[in-house]
């Protein structure tokens, strides 16, 4: 009797995650979709004017900006993260690994507001002085996000590299290949899908990041034309205006959320597929 009770209670617990996910979808879609119907999908997705109190709900520049900062972050964080992962899995000794791995994971613990704040105080002036423009820019945002995605890229690439069988390496080395030849011709190609997954999860992290981006991106309502232009992402649009928005304006923010949710779900799906294929 008790055993049965416990089993069904645990099942209910397990179903709670699914239930929460369902609730999140329902409520964000429920609030966000009516405006797509009212203002038109094309008006929202492709419109370039965001003036929600005057009936313009175009978020095209924000979609572009979100992708731009995400690719920027990937250009900076991707190669560096992969290098660190290769170093950790192929080069570092056991002791070094024991020190480096936790240290790199601690980077993930620094709150995003702290990254944003340090970005405003150090990176923004640096970009302004050396490259010109207002400093609050695509470049500054990409730099900050590039560092923020490092822990994700490193830990998942590292797992992928570690799961490559030792025999592959030994075979290559036995054929007279150098260590680096072995790594880039044998190890990295074998871990390809896991490494790709780490990049995609990094992108997911970057595109969903909010507080750090608000602080360094400048939040201008146009499509950035150079890496020194300020921009506003989907996430910042929600966070900047949610506290005071009402009526259609609030619905517009939920529509922004719907677009973000769809992009995130696609990225996660691809990444999980990559991880499963790798293992």
């Amino acid at each position: 009797m008790k055993e049965y009770f416990v089993k069904y209670m645990l099942m209910a617990f397990a179903l709670s995650s699914l239930f929460f996910l369902f609730l999140i979808f329902i409520f964000i879609l429920f609030e966000g979709l009516p405006l797509f119907h009212k203002a038109g999908l094309k008006h929202i997705i492709l419109g370039s004017k965001w003036a929600p109190t005057k009936g313009s709900f175009g978020i095209f520049p924000m979609i572009i900006s979100s992708f731009l900062v995400t690719f920027g972050a990937l250009i900076i964080g991707g190669p560096m993260g992969l290098s660190c992962a290769i170093y950790l899995s192929e080069y570092s000794g056991k002791r070094m690994k024991m020190f480096l791995k936790p240290a790199l994971e601690l980077l993930a613990g620094i709150p995003s507001v702290v990254y944003g704040f340090l970005g405003v105080v150090y990176i923004v002036p640096l970009v302004r002085d050396y490259f010109g423009g207002p400093g609050f820019s695509l470049l500054s945002t990409s730099l900050i996000l590039g560092v923020m995605i490092l822990p994700t890229v490193i830990s998942i690439s590292f797992d992928a590299l570690m799961s490559v069988p030792k025999t592959y390496r030994e075979g290559s080395l036995a054929m007279g290949a150098t260590k680096w030849q072995t790594i880039y011709k044998v190890v990295v190609p074998s871990a390809k899908s896991g490494i790709l997954a780490s990049f995609i999860l990094g992108m997911g992290r970057a595109i969903g990041e909010t507080m750090a981006v608000i602080m360094v991106a400048g939040n201008a309502l146009r499509t950035p034309l150079s890496i020194l232009d300020p921009l506003r992402t989907l996430t910042s649009n929600i966070a900047l205006e949610l506290a005071y928005a009402s009526g259609d304006h609030r619905l517009g923010l939920f529509s922004t959320g719907v677009v973000l949710l769809i992009i995130i779900m696609i990225l996660n799906y691809i990444a999980n597929f990559g991880i499963k294929k790798g293992s």
Partner: peptide, 23 residues
């Protein structure tokens, strides 16, 4: 269930904020 947990893990915090705010 695992799909649910993984999806939940990937949702950015601002969307949790948006959900919590409306719900």
């Amino acid at each position: 269930i695992r799909f649910g947990v993984e999806s939940l893990a990937g949702i950015p915090s601002i969307l949790f904020g948006l959900f919590g705010f409306i719900f």
